[in-house]
Design a protein around this nucleic acid. Structure first.
Lengths: 340, 340
DNA sequence: CTGAAAGCGCTAACAA
DNA sequence: TTGTTAGCGCTTTCAG
């Protein structure tokens, strides 16, 4: 029913090899024959079968991106968009796979990245398993980590610990000493980045001679609602923090709402810093750390493209710049604060 | 370098047909041989080539979803997630294509949906072009419209006009007569849905004997920031509306901010209704119309799956239920309002 | 500049 | 229950 290369060859009265040549822009075809072929193609409304082409070429012309199933989050969407934008311009198809449990990760890391399925893989915010590293990385399709950090992978990453320091230093400089840290659960396989931010936070406290107070560290699911509750909890302490460092903007927004519902004004009564600089952060005038989300996708995809073109290429590591964006949710520590 | 079916056959000392049988769970294989093959497979770490399989089967085992390039919006992401969730459980790969200009749509509708590339196509919020309908729909891969409405397509849709009525009736019932409508630009190829909501709005006004006031209809880009400006404009009129119907929750949130920044309280000073019931709407306690976004993806994908299984299947149309979710941003018209 | 033919890795009759 | 074989639609030597 659908025209094949053979139909075109027949109609143009040439061989299928010639048709293949004109389709692939091979210059070794006379203008006359080329025209005949082109005509036949348009008459028959012919499109080459990608599948056949791929089998013949021995490549799938497809790259997979694997990411946690809550790709609903703004940060994943942004990264995905970056990837999508560069892949669209290439000859590669993009297929998306989501994983939601650590056990599933295992499976995906192995079967998915098998050369029979894809020519390359992008992992977003997912740490590779040891099995994958040992068994598939050496022989399998090239892989790159976006928002991940593993010596044996090409990757684009940020210095999360540094980010944690940036935020905390800013707050300390403003005179805050009661600084809380609100984040995801730190003990999940996904969020090593959060742990690093936490470490940066603690480092700066230490340097500033501020003792770490466990009650100032709260964890919960990565969502506004949960963050709001955690913030209420924090702000209801006998000796509440004067500043909150939320490990993501999404969570910072929850804090914002909690503060607002408790009648507090920012930055007069409370200072707040987020992380990521998602759209809403700008909109809400939230002080935050900017990390290039969209660009991380773009760069990851570009690195992958280059690795697929030249498999001998050495590991490439891109560390993206972080910058503190000071907006209106941070200010000097309130005068009225009871000094601890 | 990678094991093929032939390697397995050799190692197991059987024919490739037998290997193919065990791989495809064909019961006509003795347990003994099956075991031999299975062993060989695991020793060689064999995975069948999907490409070869597809070529042989004459199917691509791939479905494409085509959507506007701003898939960054919560509503698209939700729909996409629904599609992804059902496809993950099937044997189909999902490839994503975005289009950003009407001219690109044209191209995608034709080349993309060509049978050589995909077995099925899902279009999200994209109206099919006449060319596509005439040339490709009859012979090409089955297609379904998610959030679209066209007689010749299977589709899952909502009654947007009805949604517009629901909102407006609610407002009218509360006593409002100065009701504004804030939306995307109505004259783009994408948002027919917005136009229908607008029509629903006007119908109810008419029924209620409320003349339509052009200055109460404002349009702008689909974003919080733009909506905030539009709302300010609306609220600064000499005779400002007492209620605003925002055609999407995202825009409603912009209105919320505008009102708040002008010192207005909701619903005392202003009533506000959104549309979609995205996560944030619940979080912000926004009165809105719930439309099953995630489910639209699920259903669209299921319909497509059934069409691919049985191409003779007639067109399936699912109209999803809409429901008005009354939360805290709507209330009776303020007493102090100057009656018009 | 053009054509013949082998082969990419698999599936599915058809035979045995 | 198993093997043989003919494709699927294309790319790519190798000859001419």
């Amino acid at each position: 029913m659908v025209a094949t290369i053979r139909d075109v060859a027949e109609k143009a009265e040439v061989s299928i090899a010639t048709v293949s040549r004109v389709v692939n822009q091979n210059p070794a075809v006379s203008d006359a024959t080329r025209q005949k072929v082109l005509d036949a193609i348009s008459v028959l409304n012919y499109t080459p079968s990608q599948i056949a082409r791929r089998l013949s070429l021995g490549r799938t012309q497809t790259v997979a991106v694997v990411l946690p199933s809550f790709f609903t989050r703004p940060s994943y969407v942004e990264r995905l968009r970056g990837i999508q934008d560069v892949l669209t311009k290439s000859e590669y198809d993009l297929v998306i796979h989501t994983v939601d449990s650590p056990v599933q990760i295992e499976g995906y890391f192995t079967t998915l990245s098998h050369p029979s399925r894809v020519d390359g893989v992008l992992f977003i915010s997912l740490p590779p398993t040891k099995e994958y590293v040992e068994q598939y990385l050496p022989t399998g399709a090239p892989a790159v980590l976006v928002d991940g950090n593993h010596e044996q992978f090409s990757r684009v990453m940020i210095d999360d610990r540094h980010g944690g320091r940036l935020v905390t230093e800013h707050l300390v400089k403003l005179g805050h000493r009661r600084i809380a840290f609100l984040s995801d659960f730190l003990n999940t396989p996904y969020y090593i980045s959060m742990q690093l931010r936490f470490e940066g936070y603690r480092e700066v406290l230490k340097t500033a001679g501020i003792p770490f107070r466990p009650e100032y560290h709260v964890e919960g699911a990565h969502a506004r609602l949960e963050a709001r509750e955690l913030a209420r909890q924090l702000l209801s302490l006998d000796d509440p923090p004067t500043a909150i460092f939320a490990a993501s903007d999404t969570q910072a927004i929850g804090v914002l709402d909690a503060a607002r519902s408790m009648g507090m004004r920012l930055p007069e009564d409370l200072s707040l810093v987020g992380f990521d600089n998602i759209r809403d952060a700008e909109y809400l005038n939230l002080t935050t750390v900017h990390q290039p989300l969209y660009e991380s996708g773009v760069q990851g995809a570009q690195i992958l493209l280059s690795m697929m073109k030249n498999p001998a290429k050495p590991i490439q590591v891109v560390t993206q710049e972080l910058s503190l964006i000071i907006r209106s949710t941070t200010g000097p520590v309130p005068e009225t604060g009871v000094s601890s």
